[in-house]
Structures are given as structure tokens and as C-alpha cells.
Nucleic acid binder design. Sequence first.
DNA 1: TTGCGTGCAAAGGTTTTGCATGGCA
DNA 2: TGCCATGCAAAACCTTTGCACGCAA
Lengths: 145, 145
Amino acid sequence: MGQSIYNTAAREALVSFLASNPDRQFTTDQIFESLIEISGNKNPGKSTIYRLLSKLCHEGVVQRSRDDGANYLYRYIEEDRNCEGHLHMKCLGCGRVYHLECEIGDELMRHVGSEHGFEINSGLSMLYGECGDCTDSKKTKRIKK
Amino acid sequence: MGQSIYNTAAREALVSFLASNPDRQFTTDQIFESLIEISGNKNPGKSTIYRLLSKLCHEGVVQRSRDDGANYLYRYIEEDRNCEGHLHMKCLGCGRVYHLECEIGDELMRHVGSEHGFEINSGLSMLYGECGDCTDSKKTKRIKK
DNA sequence: TTGCGTGCAAAGGTTTTGCATGGCA
DNA sequence: TGCCATGCAAAACCTTTGCACGCAA
């Protein structure tokens, strides 16, 4: 039924790149450029990357999403992490995704479910904002002026 | 400085359609088809719709966003409603957007800000899931079988 | 009458697909 | 050896833009 997966150079390069940045999302262009840096002149072609990303999504290795921006975003899903149960927050400054593994998140989902009749799918939901690192670096810049 | 706005048939048709569904998001294709139904053979062209939607976003009348899906989504912003302060939940079944104007949402944003250093932008954030109406209709269908 | 709005067609950019070849198991 | 993967180019798709004409104010 399911097709077998071949371990090729392109697949390995892509997965290892994404896996080394598990809390970041990348556009396809960012992926292309990064793989050129890593693989040199033997980098995989664009259609290969598109096809691999599509397969990895089906395999549950990678999550595809989209901002308000133009293009798709891909993020590696850590194997030992079940992201189904908690909410995520994405920093609009640096693009990092933070896991809200905290009682307040569960509480919100429970409350919304029981009081408002709305069952939140935490895996698909995303809160956008600015993380502490980015807020701090902005402050630093402001002081420097 | 700012350009003046002309009240044309196309603009009126588009705004009145979106305004009559303030809690729904539409793709451009859905908008095209709806305007054809409403306006008949004198419906506005696609480029006009695209240009109008772009202008309406700048005017703050419409909000543009994107799901995991392929295309842009547009939603009318109710005039008497300030959506900056609260979170939104979108039903994956019917596409409606619900406003979480509730203490628990504020609490989560405060907590995340003070405890995790992450400042949530509520206007851009979206929680996905299934609303009560859709859950109920599923149950009904199940019983009917 | 002025300047914005409109429609058509063409261009632009991203993603997908067809086909012949290459490579893993 | 049998499939799957790859690369190139072409196609498909959504969105934007140029240009001439139409229309609101």
C-alpha cells in the first residue's frame, strides 16, 4: 500500500537541515539557499525539494503552514514531541516557534470547549507576536541611537 | 495626500457582500462566484476585485489572512468592533470566525507576556478548531446513519 | 473636466507536473 | 532488477500590473 522511502542524498540533506532547526519555519527559498550553502554545487533541484517537502508532510515529519505572507512555510516536527496537546506561538521578528506547554493554555482550551462549545485544534493553531529576545534586541537598538 | 474614494457599483457590491457576512472569511474565488450570483452578468472583473480588496485592506475595512490552504482569505471588519484586544477562533467546518471576548483570553495573553516574555498580537493570531454548531450537526448525521 | 475605477490581456512569481534518466535497495 | 527519486522544462495557478477607456464627483 504505502510506497517505500529511499534514503537519498537530497532527502538526507533536507531533513538534516530542517531537523537542526526544529523551532524555526522556513520558506522554500530559504531552504534552497541553505542547501546550496551546505551541499555546494551538488545541491538538489527545486522540484525535488518541493516533492520531498510534500512527502515529508504526509509522513508527518514536517509541518506546512502559511503566514499572512506570500509563500509556504515548513517546520520540522521533533519526534519526541507531541505537539497535539499544546498551543504554539510564533515570533514575527525571528520566526521561531515556541511551545506553550503551560497550564494556562490547557485551561483556555478547556474553557473554550466547555463554555463556548468550541473545540480547539492546538496542532493547527498559532499565536503570533514578539518573543522576549526580539523585544530586548529592539530596546538595545533604541538605546544605541 | 490620500486618494479620494469613488463609490462605484463594484465597490458597493463587494463591500455589501462582505459586510453581510462579517464573521466569515472568503477566498477570492468564493467572492467572484458570490458576486456573479448577486450581480448577474454585470459582475465586476477579477482584477477589479483584487484591486478593491487591496484598497479595502489599506482602509482597514477588510482583513486579509491566510490558512494553511492555498489562497488568501478576506474578512469584513465590523465597524463597531475593535478586534485588536481579543483572540479569534476559526471553525474548520463552516469557516466562521468567532471572537473570544472573554477573561480567559486576556488572562492567557497577560500570562504569556509576563511569564514567558512573549507579547501576543491578538489581531494576527488565530485558533483553529470546530464550533458547536458543526459538532452538533456531525452528531446528528451520525445518529441518522 | 479631472482623476480614480474598470476590464482585458499580459506579466510575474510560486508551486506542480510530465518525461526521460539516474540511483537506492 | 524493480521502483522510487531526480532534473529539466513546461504547465498550472493565483495575483499583480499596463494600458486604454469609462465613470463618479
